[in-house]
């Protein structure tokens, strides 16, 4: 069944995007990505460790270029300026790569986004030709502004980054989904497969996660669970769920022909 996710003009079969942080080692990262079936993987950009042996393995060696679309992020940036500089470096590092994840944080305790600087950075990046997938709060007004600036995907949080608290405000997510003309992906907060399913059932176009997989007891197995959870949620959304009937049961089996000593 063809149901591609289209981001910045490119089609993807998988609606699960996975981060590459916090795994035990690069091999486990590669195994989890493989099990998840994802096609887009996020990477962070950091200063090279000058004291370190330069021949140590590099993450990029474990991510086959023809299999994954890399999504460099601006994790850890607290100003629009730092985020823009980071993604310019990413573009150079990844050979004129344009698809990026913008996040500008506002507070080290909650990692809640600074939407003012996010908007500012988004404007600059879009002008410079980047395809910007943007992490933001679940404020529909901000989401609309980011879309109007030209971001190619809106990625509201479901709950705080790395918290695993799941989808705390489905109503706001739904408002954003209904008003948006670009893909909306839940980014941050998913803790287990049912969270991903709920997000997809709401009508999200995809889910981005990292800690929910990396911090599971068995990350490779959880990666598979997430793949199935996202698929289940997407199929349920497309199928269209039955209406809820409050305080009114309807039997699934025929009412007639039941053997009974009470009937005549």
């Amino acid at each position: 069944m063809q149901d591609p996710l289209i981001i910045a003009g490119k089609s993807y079969q998988s609606r699960l995007l996975v981060g590459t942080g916090k795994y035990r080692d690069f091999q486990q990262t590669a195994d989890a990505l493989d099990a998840s079936g994802c096609e887009i993987v996020t990477v962070a950009i950091r200063r090279v460790n000058l004291g370190q042996n330069p021949n140590e393995p590099n993450l990029l060696d474990f991510l086959p270029k023809n299999r994954y679309t890399l999504l460099p992020n601006t994790a850890g940036c607290y100003t629009a300026d730092d985020a823009v500089r980071t993604l310019r470096l990413a573009r150079e590092l990844l050979d004129d790569h344009r698809l990026v994840k913008l996040e500008v944080l506002g507070d080290p305790h909650t990692l809640y986004p600074n939407v003012r600087d996010t908007l500012k950075a988004a404007e600059t990046l879009v002008k410079e030709g980047f395809d910007v997938m943007v992490y933001t709060s679940d404020d529909p007004i901000v989401a609309k502004e980011l879309e109007q600036i030209g971001c190619c995907a809106i990625m509201p949080l479901a709950s705080l980054i790395g918290s695993g608290m799941g989808i705390l405000n489905p109503w706001n997510l739904q408002l954003i989904i209904e008003q948006s003309n670009v893909p909306v992906l839940v980014d941050a907060g998913v803790g287990t497969a049912s969270d991903a399913t709920i997000g997809m059932e709401l009508g999200c176009h995809g889910v981005l996660m990292n800690t929910a997989i990396a911090a599971a007891q068995d990350p490779v197995r959880m990666a598979l669970a997430m793949k199935l959870g996202v698929q289940a949620g997407r199929e349920a959304y497309l199928a269209g769920r039955m209406p809820k009937r409050f305080y009114s049961a309807t039997p699934s089996s025929p009412r007639e022909g039941v053997i009974s000593s009470r009937s005549g």
Partner: peptide, 10 residues
Amino acid sequence: LEIVVAVGGG
């Protein structure tokens, strides 16, 4: 100078 590499991140 800033010299950077790609590392694991979400």
